[in-house]
Structure formats: structure tokens, C-alpha cells
Design a protein around this nucleic acid. Structure first.
Lengths: 387, 387
DNA sequence: TTCAAGTGTTCGGGTTTCCGAACATGCCAA
DNA sequence: TTGGCATGTTCGGAAACCCGAACACTTGAA
């Protein structure tokens, strides 16, 4: 089984070491040649147990993410290991695809990796990263399109920073935060020199500015990187110059909404978490599994920006040692409202019983008469309601 | 087994409630009469699973420490629950002594967090206190959101008074009491200097004022602390600038309604009482048990402000040596003759059903789900109650 | 002391409540 | 027209609720 696991992981592009004995694995994890992202570990090893290994590692430092796999696991052991920080504990036989998903969630992105995932781990996100890298290699105008909060400006900067113009400045013009007039656009164009002009919300440019921009593109030697919302096409009918539009759309990168790739939302949360957690007085242990599920299910109309804001608040608000769903979505506790029928019924009975007892001075029999129930029934209810 | 557990725990000096069904346990944990330290929960319950119960609780708030006990547990489930924040997961048969040890371990740290409560004793209130303290340590704009009468302005002041800007003034602008025009906002901004600008009801600012505020935030060195109602998001479609909104919501604190944490209502009443009582010529002895019950059951649409007003009136009007329900809710005492238990039960059900139907827009099936009864049952009740 | 009255508690039964299944109906969209 | 989808309605069985009848107590007054 080990062999097939190694084979599969290498197929996925991972660099894998396989140790058959605990004593061999110990130094390989403690003083690795290259940083270890994750350890997949059987419990039964010829010269000890996986638990021992993990135990030894936690005594001296912070081990990498551990995923235990075991043939005859005990619940006891699972609880113990998870509580002491192991990432997972899976009983054989297990689903390999499941394991791979957990692995990608768990792995910390490596800085020195050749092509680290920037936008996410989904197919769509990797496609974005490829297209951005591709755009950096070219020198044509680029249009980044997508909903709000998807980091389009960050992508624009990355295109510039990896392009041949990286030595020249990147000037950002924001047509969404404030209006851009002819003068400020002209100023930006003269500032940019041979660098990249980044226009945020290009669809909001006035006709004046569109003319100016088109003229400048013909004369001056700068590169245009523009961002726009999803509704750009509709602008054409309105006031947007079709020749500028076709110039932009000839090379456009569409960033899909976060809700279309839920695995990226979870991944992003895991990536943002450590930095936020570091600011806490009492650090948290992580994000609860149920909260991750809620992240996956949420719509994220504000995309990455919303996720960042929510997570920040959640990390501040968390009470125990995990971020829970209610920390991320506190507004739901209100609309989840509307207590159940049994609940309001009990509440009504409780207050009425209390009032009756008050009136009779604690005489149960009398109170029962007031409430028109038998003494026994009243007694039962008092038991049930804890009075 | 439940009985022996209860017996043993009471022998150890604990106060124990034993619920045999999930639907009964849910309200007892969510709106407890006294704060719950820990929950010991079987997985198999007659009307659901312990996992469901826990999941429901984490969706809307911070549950107390959970220890699961189960006959046929799975490792999968154990891992999932522990990763969602459960404290333990024990397979039967288990060692009672072991369980007690784990219980004390779990409850010890709770006793140590000795921050005196400011907003209340519930988990939600403690989370608010933490977030407010945290916000005081930062210097970013803060938004306090919640219904009316929850003391948002008081919290805003507390943030300022504990922040590094406490030596500088805190200027309050109220957009709810009266309209705020451009001139008065500009005046406040120039007055505030390097202090904190507190805007009450930020959602009511005119477009003019929003522009001015945004511009000032870029130029001047003051801190913005804003409060708003729950419906802020809906304002966006209307007239609220989305960039200002995203700036505010990047750090927001949501204050839950008092009706969602009845134990805080009782606590608050107990806290306000002595000062009010001191002003009486003949001091009272306290608040009657039935009155406390009524406080717990009341909806408190006006939240803390309503509670304060009612209690003040009640303390002034009380004739005996206790504050009674009729002092707090004089409008109810019209029908003096204590209605029967069945009557109040039906009345409570009727209003709750009406509320549910209101929310679902008349959809019976949906309403039944909200009320946690079957569609058939709801239909029967509607027949009986004439709805 | 004794008796009466009240409370805490259990038990067996009759009655109501609750639910899921089933089926007919009406309504809307494809 | 047809095929969902939600509602209106009935039905049978399981679970609950409710009650009276007991019985063992405590309390307090005669």
C-alpha cells in the first residue's frame, strides 16, 4: 500500500520520501534536507507506533502536518491524537481521493516552490495563475475581469512585477474609488513612462478619458493593464467606445467568483489564518471542521475580500480554541431565530406556572387548581421544566 | 446509565440536568437558566443524534464544552467531532472516574478566565467584551452593529477610552436623533483632531456626508467608530456607497439581541437593581422568582434600554417587598384572573405560528420546518387555533 | 399523640398529540 | 399538456400527555 501511495502522490507532483521504520523517519522529519509539508503515517510500525513518533516530535518542536492511517485504530487513540494537533486519523480502508483533498488543505504553501499556488488550488485558480504568468511574458494590453474582492489589482501588479517592464513604475488609476478626470489621467500617463498603467474599473472611464487613453496608447510606450467588473459588455450600448473595448477584450483573463470554486475558499482561509492568529493574545488551534464546511457552502458575494474580513472578525471573536461557524457568520444567529414550537410552549408554561406559584405562595395544589390541571400534572411539568 | 451518571455527578456537587431528547436539550443549552459548564451527550438519541445537536449549536453560537459518549462510535465521527471543537469522544463501556477527570480538566480553565463581565455572562456577551477590548488595541475603523437599545454607543465609548487615543476627544455625531448635514459633519471632523469620531447610525448619512467622510478619512488622522442597525447591507442597493461599506465592514462587531441570551437579561436586571433600589424610601428585598421568569421569557424588542426603563418603573411602583411580574409588565395585568395552562400554551403557539407564517410568506411547509414540527402537525394546530 | 392537610413520587390507564405515509388537489412553468 | 411542487386531508400506530389512585413522608394544630 505504501508503494501505491507514493506512486500516486508523485503523480500529483509531490516530492515523496517513504520510510518503513520509525527510527529512520524521526531524523528525516526532524532535520529534513528540504522542509516537510506533511507526513502520512501508519500507526503500526515495525519498531514502534506512529503515536510514539508524533509524541517524540511534539516534545521537541512543532512537527509538520500529520495524517495518520491505521488498520485497527481505536477511538481513544484518534481522540488523543487529534486533540494534540494531528490533522487527521483515517481508518483503512480509505478513499484515496479523500486523503488527497485533506492533504492539499493541510499543506502550507512553500515559499521557494517553483510555481506556488497563488490564487487557489482549484483547476480554475491554477488556470488563472497560468494565464497571469503568460500575460507577464507578453506585452499586449490585458483586461482582468471578475466580481469585486477577487484581487484583480493584486493580479495586475503580479503581471507587471513579472514582466520585462518590472524595472519601470506601475501607476494605478482608480476609477471606482473616485472619479478620474482628464487631467489626472494625463498626469498618470506621463508618470508611467515605459512602465505599466493599471486602470481599476476601466468601464467607468468617461468618454473624454477613453479618447485620451486610446490616443496615448498609439503614441506612448506603456503597457495597459485594466480591470473591470462582469458587466463590461453592457456598457458598450451605453457610452463605452467599442474600439477600446475590442482592444481590451482581445486579451482578457476572467477570474471566476469564489463561490464557483469552494475548495479555494477553504484553502484561502487556511492560508490567511496563521497571520491573523499570531495577533491574538491566546492563539487558536485552527478552524473547526464544521466551520470549514460552512465556508465551502457560503456564497461569498464579496469574494476574497469578504472572506478576509469575516475571518479577521472570527479570529478575534472566537472563544474556545477553534474558530466556529458562528464566529464567521454571526448574523445568522439572528435569522436562525424563531424558536421551535415546543420551546415557546415550554417558556409560556414555565412563566405561567411561576406566576401561579407566586400567587398561591408556593402551594402546589392550589396552583394546580388555578391552572386547571391536576396536581400530578403540575408536578410533572415542574420536574420537566426544572422549577 | 443516565440516572447513575446524574447521581454520581450530583454526589460530586454538580448541578445536573438530564434531558432524554435532543429537542428538549437544545433550548436548555441554548437559552439556559444558568450558564452551562459542560454537556455530556450520547450520540444516539431517540429523536436525532448528538452530532446533530452539536452541529446545530455551533451554527448559531458557542456551545459549552461537549463530551460525547457512544455505544457504537466510529473513528470517522470521532475525528470530525473533535476537529469541530468537541472536548472528548468516549466509547462505551467507559471508566466513570476517567470521565470525571476529563470533566474537571475541561471546566478548570473556564473558572480561570476571570475577566469581569461587562455586557453579560453569556458566551455571546463575553465574546463581545473580548472584541471590544481587542478593537481598543487596534487603530482601524470599527463598526458596531445590532438592534436598538443594546448600548452600542456605550461600547463605542469604551473602545475609545481604552485606546491609545483616549487622551484626545471622542466626538459623537448622531444621525438617528436628528439629521446630519455637511456642515455639522465637517465641524465634528475638525473638532475631533486626533481623537475618535463616533457616528451613531452611519447608515443614515446622506451621500454628501458619505463623500465628505471618505475624503476626511484619507486626509485627517482620526479614528472612525460607527454604529448601525442590522439592516445596513440592504442600504447599499439604496444609496450607501459600497466602498465606505466595505471599509466599515472590514472590522465589524455584531451585538446579538437580548432575547437571544435571556440569561443576560436576568443578569442585567440583577445588576441594575441595587442602584435603583437605593433611591427608594423603603428598600425592596429583590426581584421575585416569577418576575425573573417573566424577564427570561420576554422578547425585549427594545433590548437593554427597555429592560432598564421597565425595571425603573417597576422599582418605583412596587408595593410589597419584592418586584413582581405585574410591576414589570403592568400592561398584561388587565385580565387579572390567571389564565389556565392550556390557554397560555395555545396563545404562545398561536403567536409563534403566526410569526413563522409571516416569515415564510404563508408557506406552510417551510413554516413547519422553522417550528420543528411536521407539516401535518402544523396543519392540525392551525385548524384547532383557527388560523 | 393523633389527625388532617399538604407534598413528593410512582403506577396504570385512557386520551391526545405527533408523525410519516398516502392520496387528491391546485398552481405554475416548461 | 404535462410534470413538478406545495398544499389540503385522512389514517393508523407510536409516543406523549394527563389524570386519578395510591402510598410514604412531613408539618402543624388540636
Amino acid at each position: 500500500m505504501g508503494a501505491s501511495l507514493v506512486q500516486r502522490l508523485e503523480l500529483e507532483g509531490a516530492e515523496v520520501q517513504w520510510h518503513r521504520q520509525m527510527l529512520r523517519a524521526l531524523p528525516a522529519i526532524r532535520t529534513p534536507r528540504r522542509p516537510v509539508d506533511a507526513v502520512i503515517c501508519d500507526i503500526r510500525l515495525p519498531d514502534g507506533t506512529g503515536e510514539e513518533l508524533y509524541e517524540t516530535l511534539t516534545r521537541t518542536g512543532h512537527p509538520p502536518a500529520f495524517l495518520f492511517i491505521t488498520g485497527q485504530g481505536s477511538i481513544d487513540q484518534a481522540v488523543r491524537l487529534i486533540r494534540s494537533g494531528a490533522m487527521d486519523y483515517i481508518a483503512k480502508p480509505f478513499d484515496l481521493a479523500q486523503l488527497l483533498i485533506r492533504l492539499t488543505q493541510v499543506m502550507r504553501p512553500r515559499a521557494e516552490q517553483e510555481m506556488p499556488p497563488e490564487s487557489g488550488i482549484s483547476e480554475a485558480a491554477r488556470a488563472i495563475d497560468r494565464q497571469v504568468g503568460d500575460a507577464a511574458g507578453r506585452d499586449t494590453p490585458v483586461l482582468l475581469r471578475g466580481g469585486p474582492g477577487l484581487g484583480k489589482l493584486r493580479l495586475a501588479r503580479r503581471i507587471h512585477d513579472h514582466s520585462d517592464r518590472r524595472a519601470a513604475p506601475a501607476v494605478v488609476i482608480d476609477a471606482i474609488g473616485g472619479t478620474v478626470d482628464r487631467a489626472s489621467l494625463a498626469g498618470a500617463i506621463s508618470d508611467v513612462g515605459e512602465g505599466s498603467l493599471i486602470i481599476v474599473g476601466v468601464g467607468r472611464l468617461t468618454s473624454d478619458c477613453q479618447d485620451l487613453l486610446l490616443a496615448a496608447l498609439r503614441k506612448a510606450d506603456f503597457r495597459l493593464i485594466a480591470t473591470a467588473g462582469l458587466r463590461l459588455d453592457e456598457k458598450v450600448a451605453d457610452h463605452f467606445r467599442s474600439d477600446l473595448l475590442s482592444l481590451l477584450t482581445s486579451h482578457e483573463i476572467v477570474v471566476p467568483a469564489l463561490s464557483e470554486r469552494p475548495e479555494d475558499a477553504v484553502w484561502l482561509a487556511g492560508r490567511l489564518f496563521p497571520a491573523m492568529n499570531a495577533r491574538r493574545a491566546s492563539p487558536l488551534n485552527g478552524i473547526a471542521a464544521s466551520a470549514e464546511e460552512a465556508i465551502r457552502a457560503h456564497d461569498w458575494p464579496g469574494n476574497g475580500r469578504e472572506l478576509r474580513a469575516r475571518l479577521l472578525r472570527a479570529v478575534e471573536a472566537a472563544v474556545g480554541d477553534l474558530v466556529l461557524t458562528s464566529d464567521l457568520f454571526p448574523e445568522r444567529s439572528g435569522d436562525a431565530g424563531l424558536r421551535s414550537l415546543a420551546e415557546v410552549r415550554d417558556a409560556a408554561e414555565r412563566s405561567q406556572i411561576a406566576a401561579a406559584l407566586e400567587r398561591t405562595g408556593g402551594q402546589v395544589g392550589e396552583a394546580a387548581k388555578l391552572l386547571r390541571v391536576s396536581r400530578t400534572t403540575l408536578w410533572e411539568k415542574m420536574q420537566k421544566l426544572g422549577l
